[in-house]
Amino acid sequence: MLLEVENLSVYYDSIQALKGISLQVDEGELVTIVGSNGAGKTTTLLTISGILRPRHGTIRFQGQDITYLAPHEIVRRGISHCPEGRQIFTGLTVMENLLMGAYHRRDRERVAQDLAWVQELFPILAARRRQLAGTLSGGEQQMLAIARALMSRPKVLLLDEPSLGLAPMLVDTIFEVIQQLRAQGVTVLLVEQNAYQALRVADRAYVLETGTIKLSGPAQELARNEEVKKAYLGG
């Protein structure tokens, strides 16, 4: 098991956001967490990344306990987080943003290779690499956010709402890229409100509701589940 979350409870002051959830991600898998706004999806990812501290529970990565490591240590071990709302550095150039994604890496040659790789994945970034990231369109910013997260050469990529606020055509592009990544062997844990698209591309899925996991299983099975259809797929 590559990533294992066990009985995780997270609080914001006295409000419990996660009520003992457990989930696993295996190497090469594309796993998605679907659920409505406020269900705890982003909280889950932020806790895995070490930004939030759980009150109970453990997070194991490649068999090692990483629950209380600093965020930069977690990135170093191979977990990369592409946050909700893109959060690119708007005052830095596209290239500088990409280099920040590879901040901890000293293997210059490989970094150069990965720069070439992400620019191949997102050709628009190559064209705009000297531009300030704040001047990019929303879709381009999302691509930059994903590319930046890939620059650490993660063993697991945590993707938080990559389709949020994008035009339908761009949503398709983003999901194409996610499938492409998966085909290239990148393990992905995808958080999405767009359950239809997420369940279509994922191997397995978890349905998160008010801090607990309601359902889990192969994505295609969940997509056919009556409850899921009613709650998340518009009937």
């Binding site: 930004i51 930069h72 990135v75 170093r76 990369s80 946050p83 959060q87 830095l92």
Partner: peptide, 24 residues
């Protein structure tokens, strides 16, 4: 420089900087 660019990144968005593996 790497650290210098990271300094600007931190000033803009400290959380995103941490998520990128920058030791703040």
């Amino acid at each position: 420089t790497r650290v210098g660019i990271a300094m600007r990144a931190c000033a803009e968005n400290l959380r995103a900087a941490r998520l990128m593996g920058i030791n703040i």
